Simulated assay, not measured.
Amino acid sequence: MYYLFVLAVGVERLLELVVSRRNTRWSIGRGGREFGQGHYPVMVAMHALLLASCVVEVAGAHRPFIPWLGWPMVAVVAASTAVRWWCVSALGKHWNPRLIVIPGASLVRRGPYRWLHHPNYTAVTAEVAALPLVHSAWVTAIAFSVANALLLSVRIRAENDALGYA
């Protein structure tokens, strides 16, 4: 069942890439400029490797499903996915995992952006930690949480710089 859950997360990520591609064309068509191109492939690779590592650790290390840990982590993954899609909805065509800024566009202050500057990254951080822990893959949870923190430190700095440009 866990492998199907990880597969479902992977399919959801592919759907995000489809939305991203459409929104990229829309943004570039309106004069959008992309920033942080160097870290984007690293971000995509990290998320793909997270999914693979979840499967490899659970299968290779025979990690058990521990109900008192697994079920709450399923809830965290579900909630973080809901928050991420709330971010997508609030940003509309401006949403993109690529860092594209359209000059003159105003910052979004609705949806979860009313309360947080980076709600999508908060949700991703929760998901990166929780997805492996659904099936007690604690090595993956630790390793990818650290990798995600390092990547987000680069990403958020680039995003803040890019938004200062706008």
Score class of each variant (00 low, 15 high):
W85L: 10
I28Y: 09
A61W: 11
A90C: 04
A90V: 12
L15A: 10
L163N: 00
L69V: 14
F5R: 02
G60C: 12
G70H: 01
V146K: 10
C87E: 01
E34N: 06
W68M: 08
S106G: 14
G29I: 13
P119F: 02
V56S: 09
T125A: 15
A123D: 01
V108I: 15
A105C: 07
E159D: 08
P64W: 00
T24V: 14
S80P: 04
A149Q: 14
E57Q: 09
G92K: 11
Y121S: 11
L15N: 06
L99M: 15
A149V: 12
P103M: 04
L7N: 00
A59G: 07
W26Q: 05
A147G: 11
W85S: 12
T122E: 00
A59K: 10
S27W: 00
L99D: 06
L7A: 10
R25A: 14
A61I: 01
T24H: 08
N148K: 02
V108K: 03
A52G: 13
V58I: 13
M46C: 09
Y2F: 13
H118M: 05
G104F: 03
G111P: 00
L163E: 01
V124K: 01
N96C: 09
A78N: 12
V44G: 09
P67T: 04
V124L: 08
V19F: 14
T125W: 13
P119G: 09
L4F: 04
E16N: 06
A105Q: 06
V56G: 03
R84E: 12
A129G: 09
E127C: 07
R114M: 10
Y165R: 12
V124R: 02
L163Q: 07
R21S: 15
N120P: 02
E159R: 11
I102N: 00
H117M: 06
A141K: 02
A48V: 14
P67K: 01
A45N: 00
W85M: 09
G70V: 00
N96G: 03
A75G: 14
V58T: 13
A141G: 09
T81S: 14
R30C: 00
G164A: 15
V58Y: 04
A129K: 05
L163V: 12
L51G: 11
E12D: 14
V74I: 15
R30L: 06
L151Y: 13
H62Q: 12
R110V: 15
S53I: 01
W95M: 08
V76F: 05
R110T: 15
G29S: 13
N148H: 15
R155E: 12
Y121E: 08
N120L: 01
P97G: 01
A129V: 13
L133V: 04
A105T: 04
F5G: 05
P103I: 02
I66G: 00
P97Q: 03
V88N: 06
R63N: 05
E127S: 13
I66F: 05
S89T: 13
L152P: 03
L4C: 06
A162Y: 10
M43F: 12
A78R: 08
L116M: 14
F144M: 03
A123G: 09
L17Y: 11
G32I: 05
W26M: 08
R22A: 15
W68N: 00
G60K: 06
G92V: 03
E16R: 11
G111H: 02
A126Y: 10
V77C: 03
T81G: 13
L131R: 07
L69I: 12
A61N: 08
G29E: 14
V101T: 07
I28S: 01
H94P: 00
V88W: 06
C54S: 08
R22M: 12
A8D: 01
